[in-house]
Design a protein around this nucleic acid. Structure first.
Length: 826
RNA sequence: GGGCGAGUGGUGGAAUGGCAUACACGAUGGACUUAAAAUCCAUUGAUCGCAAGGUUGUGAGGGUUCGACUCCCUCCUCGCCCACCA
């Protein structure tokens, strides 16, 4: 009897070659089958991948293979998000050109994808750092420029002194650089922005159409866009022509305004403090708090501080003058940078007023307990009844919001207004390793776009990678010097490059015509294949990448380049693999090498364990021991086929016994239950872990069926074993193919028909009926599965154990649940 | 501070109103073996009992229900996202 391990090395090599030859993953443009575009987020090329990375691709590959088996014309492309900081940082450190290290890493990664058995249509590969790709990233920039959606402005930006570059807000974590953890400072630079804020409302509205996105992700996007409805109110500055506009969502509290605060970066601030007696103090305050802003925007808990400007502003509803302060708690970029302060009904204002002895005036009464301004411990921010509010007294505050807004609009004191937290997208990077921004600066003609026919603007090859606060492209004279496209005079190129999120905001369009040098994508193909049917990636991209991609697609839609408004119909976000409770990463030293494991156990074992470890949307803790279990299981299935092949091959037995015995019925029932379970998991939840465990149960059932004697036969057994092999194929493709061949099939298992669940097989002849008394399990009886309620009740009352528990009493009620459970109430 | 999610054996996890702990890992005992590996068999929430069997048990407390891991309320802990957004 053969007791060797299954020869995974030979098997895996054999089938990989076969898939390559038969083009299993090549999308067929002329196929009549239904299309299915399955997209994995394309990775940044980093050197050695671990099992945590593997999980992403194994999940995606299982979906792809399942859909192929279900008869779809599947498009499963792969590419590389190949521009970015790490390669450039490495170049600074060790002198290796980013292009070389990146292309090397890509080579390694392709090999690793292959080693996981993850198949892609490699003819469609896109690599964002190649001119054939970034030419069109630049084209996208020019489209936005043409539409007035790309503009330049001086803006305070997060600056990492160590990386010598600008960071997006989201790359700043706890005031520190996401990559190098140095303290981030603010710095004013001329930057290119994309006007994503023009699309705020549409990006918000269309979230509702994304029914197959996780609620969590939609909510995160919604909060990020941050729509709030309110009123903008103009306050006149006394003894001045200046008008300060502020925004509030709580216009019902307008009569409770006791002071106003403006941000330390408010545009009118210089003018306002011109004649102030404490001018020095104010200026000192402004300087100090500017420094705080960087840390502040990042979340550090900074105490509220402020300074009086010597000015007063007039409340337009009651003409009352209130003091004007400069404070560190007003967000410059949001609203108008000026806030009407209502200490009685806003916690922040309350704290500030307490600290500086400013007035507190109650204008909304808490219906539950009367309020007294002098005794308040905290602000009352709930609804209530209007008091001290002139003609609005007595109204419920919710109603007052409407009435006061109406009143203000009628009297032109204020105007309803919607604000968003969403900011424009800063795309400039003072970096080499990115797509150059295709713009030219001419002294005579000003800013000029590069002509589309002159694209791509190629990155120069010879560059010194010494950071000096400006883009390294500055040191490449052959790059910088250019003729103005308008007047042909001497001009200079833009030396900044684009944020890599621009590269990744349209790559899914390029896969349909990756080598096309006439356009960024083929309109017909793209309209046929998009939206993407299934997008799979990490939840860390829930906000930025997905929002940017949605934005770019909407812009392209508006310009008539594509016929759809949303890029991704269905989204699945997987969890990450942890080790010792933290994310697997090289710097933390807790990586589990995927290559080593594959060398020892083969790809299928690694795949099976990875999928079995937990539901894929959840984070999962890696345990090396569990791999053994997956390995044992595969050997167990393998033996099932090997041993019986030695014993004569029961799968060839066509006739044999009819499926009449109890044993046969049980096996058939289990087989069809497993089909149902696996199919549901694949279609609905991607819960591969439960799909696999149900297949394990079926294998256990098969072993029980044949007992220890080999050479068992019969149609039921044949069906069960075939089912196991087919159902396993999406998860462990190599061994499944080999076993499928051993079962005498000439065609690939991926051409096999996915089994249908025969519902009649799910009902056994007799079923075991659990009996509860007052909800507690007290007995079990055997009953025919076709038995009616009355018959079941009769059987239950005849059961001796039941009678023992009834102690002669008559049950008040007998509840039969779906013919599967009985509960007696006594 | 706000929002979202989660809390089940020694471990990963299963069950979304109906037999709690499927499936797997680990552990213990046994068979086979000179031995080991592999494989197979048995046991494995806690607790009482020689046993049949009982009691108890899904973060804590309360509620709804014939019946609650599941629904509702209060609280605790952890995780993630956002965060002085007026």
């Amino acid at each position: 009897m053969a007791q060797e391990f299954y020869p995974f090395k030979d098997i895996e090599a054999k089938w990989r070659k076969r898939w390559e030859e038969t083009g299993l993953f090549k999308m067929d443009q002329n196929s009549l089958k239904k299309k299915y575009y399955c997209l994995m987020m394309f990775p940044y090329p980093s050197a050695a991948l671990h099992v945590g990375h593997g999980r992403n691709y194994i999940i995606g590959d299982s979906v792809v293979r399942y859909k192929i088996m279900r008869g779809y014309n599947v498009l499963s492309p792969m590419g590389f998000d190949a521009f970015g900081l790490p390669a450039e940082n490495a170049a600074i450190k060790n002198g290796i050109h980013p292009e070389i290290s990146t292309l090397n890493n890509i080579k390694t990664m392709r090999r690793q994808f292959d080693s996981w058995g993850a198949g892609y249509d490699w003819d469609r590969e896109v690599v964002s750092c190649l001119p054939e790709y970034y030419k069109w990233t630049q084209w996208i920039f020019l489209q936005l420029y043409k539409k007035g959606l790309a503009y330049k402005k001086k803006a305070p930006v997060n600056w990492c002194p160590s990386c010598q570059t600008v960071l997006a807000n989201e790359q700043v974590i706890d005031g520190k650089c996401e990559r190098c953890s140095s303290q981030v400072i603010l710095r004013d630079l001329e930057q290119w922005f994309f006007k994503i804020t023009d699309y705020s409302q549409r990006l918000l509205n269309d979230l509702e159409s994304l029914e197959d996105w996780p609620e969590r992700v939609k909510l995160m996007q919604k909060n990020w866009i941050g729509r709030s409805q309110g009123v903008e109110i103009d306050f006149k500055v006394r003894d001045s022509d200046i008008i300060l506009r502020c925004f509030t969502t709580r216009v019902d509290t307008i009569y409770g305004v006791t002071y106003m605060v403006i941000s330390n970066e408010h545009p009118a601030i210089r003018e306002l403090v011109k004649g102030a007696s404490n001018k020095k103090e104010i200026e000192k305050f402004i300087e100090e708090t500017k420094k705080e802003n960087a840390a502040d925007r990042i979340g550090a808990d900074i105490e509220k501080r402020g300074v009086f400007t010597g000015r007063f502003v007039v409340n337009p509803v009651n003409n009352k003058a209130v003091p004007l302060w400069v404070g560190n708690y007003v967000v410059t970029e949001y609203g108008t940078g000026a806030v009407m302060a209502v200490p009685a009904h806003d916690q922040r204002d309350f704290e500030f007023a307490k600290k500086y002895g400013l007035g507190i005036e109650v204008v909304i009464d808490n219906p539950k307990e009367p309020m007294d301004a002098s005794k308040m411990k905290e602000a009352y921010a709930e609804e209530g009844v209007m008091v001290n509010s002139g003609k609005f007294n007595g109204l419920p505050s919710l109603e007052a919001i409407r009435k006061i807004a109406d009143f203000m609009e009628e009297n032109k004191i204020g105007k309803r207004k919607v604000h968003y937290k969403l900011r424009d997208w800063l795309i400039s990077r003072q970096r080499y390793w990115g797509a150059p921004i295709p713009m030219i600066y001419c002294d005579k003609c000003g800013i000029q776009p590069v002509d589309e026919k002159d694209l791509p603007v190629l990155l120069p090859r010879n560059i010194k990678f010494k950071p000096h606060g400006e883009s390294p492209l500055k040191d490449a004279p052959e790059f910088v010097k250019i003729k103005c496209p308008k007047c042909s005079g001497n001009a200079k190129r833009e030396i900044d490059t684009m944020d890599t999120f621009v590269d990744s905001s349209w790559y899914f369009l390029r896969y349909l015509s990756p080598r096309d040098d006439k356009g960024p994508f083929n309109k017909d193909l793209v309209n046929k294949w998009l939206p993407v049917d299934q997008y799979i990636g990490g939840v860390e991209h829930a906000i930025l990448h997905l929002l940017y991609s949605r934005f770019i697609v909407k812009v392209l839609y508006d310009m008539g380049h594509v016929g759809f408004k949303e890029p991704f119909a269905k989204l699945f976000t997987q969890g990450m693999i942890t080790k010792n409770g933290i994310k697997m990463s090289k710097s933390r030293g807790n990586v589990v090498s995927s290559d080593d494991l594959i060398e020892k156990y083969g790809a299928d074992t690694v795949r099976l364990y990875t999928l079995f470890i937990s539901p894929p949307e959840k984070d999962a803790e890696w345990g090396d021991r569990g791999v053994e279990g997956a390995w044992r299981f595969l050997n167990r299935v393998w033996r099932l086929i090997e041993d019986n092949a030695h014993a004569g091959g029961w799968w060839s037995v066509e006739g044999g016994e009819k499926d009449s015995t109890e044993k046969d019925k049980k096996l058939k029932q289990k087989t069809h239950y497993t089909i149902k379970k696996v199919t549901e998991d694949m279609e609905e939840t991607f819960h591969f872990n439960t799909a696999i465990s149900s297949i394990m149960e079926l294998v256990n059932e098969i072993y029980e069926y044949i007992g220890l004697k080999h050479g068992a036969s019969g149609p039921q057994l044949k069906e069960a074993v075939q089912t196991v092999v087919i159902l396993l194929a999406p998860f462990v493709p190599h061994i499944a193919e080999e076993m499928w061949e051993k079962l005498g099939n000439k065609e690939s298992v991926f051409n096999a028909e996915w089994p249908e669940c025969d519902k009649s097989a799910l009902n056994q002849s007799t079923i075991e009926l659990p009996i509860q008394i007052n909800g507690k399990l007290r007995s079990k009886i055997k009953a025919p599965s076709a038995a009616g309620e009355d018959e079941i009740k009769k059987l239950v009352l005849n059961d001796s154990l039941v009678n023992k528990w009834l102690e002669g009493k008559e049950p008040k009620k007998i509840i039969v649940v779906k013919g599967k459970l009985v509960n007696l109430v006594i």
